[in-house]
Design a protein around this nucleic acid. Structure first.
Length: 196
DNA sequence: AATTTGCCCAACCGCAGACTC
DNA sequence: GGAGTCTGCGGTTGGGCAAAT
């Protein structure tokens, strides 16, 4: 495939933050021709933007029913659980949170994670000094497994297929009780996730 | 008051798969 | 069937702002 095909090749195309006027023009054209053929949308709106940029603006900002503002506790809980199950598959997670965009959830997760990491590092520093080496090692392992799930693990698609959820449990397959609970839940979760 | 630091979030980039001709 | 184009996704970047120094 042509490596440039997805890049915005328009030499003098506008970049950066969208103006209210650009938003208005874009919304007008989409109202007429719908949210597709983004190159055409950009051209018809008379916007000096590439189609990709128009699509992103629509999906993350102009689309109807976009919910803005703070993530509620309930939503946060759902994000955590879905992320544990799915890894960094933001669009899938967003699909289960009405009005939220993948970009928003990704951003939220990244800031949430950085906070959490710092917290853990601080905890670890204190903990490692005081604790037995064995306990410190266990803590280190736990951090590593969490990094795997959060970092996008090189191949994000594999994270779910390979059973990231399982890796998340430091006790692994031996924890039969836990596994039983998981299996009980798994079916209903998958119905919940994929039954759109 | 000025500067630095850290955080948030909108937007961009590159890739892969789907679609069209 | 294959080349070119479009779309959608996840990762990353950078500007703006507020808090800290």
């Amino acid at each position: 495939m042509d490596a440039l095909s997805s890049r915005c090749t328009k030499k003098d195309a506008n970049r950066g933050t969208w103006t209210a006027e650009e938003d208005r023009k874009l919304a007008q054209v989409i109202e007429i021709q719908g949210p597709k053929r983004w190159k055409k949308v950009a051209a018809n709106a008379g916007l000096n933007r590439c189609g990709k940029s128009c699509r992103l603006r629509w999906m993350n900002y102009l689309r109807p029913n976009i919910k803005r503002g703070n993530i509620s506790d309930q939503e946060e809980d759902l994000i955590l659980r879905l992320h544990k199950l799915l890894g960094n598959r933001w669009s899938l997670i967003a699909g289960r949170l009405p009005g939220r965009t993948d970009n928003e959830i990704k951003n939220y997760w990244n800031s949430y994670l950085s906070k959490k990491k710092k917290q853990k590092q601080r905890q670890n520093r204190g903990f490692i000094v005081e604790s037995q080496p064995k306990e410190a090692k266990a803590m280190e392992l736990e951090n590593k497994s969490e990094e795997g799930a959060s970092k996008g693990e090189e191949n994000t698609k594999a994270s779910f297929d390979d059973g990231d959820f399982f890796y998340g449990s430091s006790e692994g397959a031996l924890d039969l009780q836990w596994m039983g609970k998981f299996l009980e839940l798994e079916e209903s979760w998958f119905e919940f996730l994929y039954d759109k």
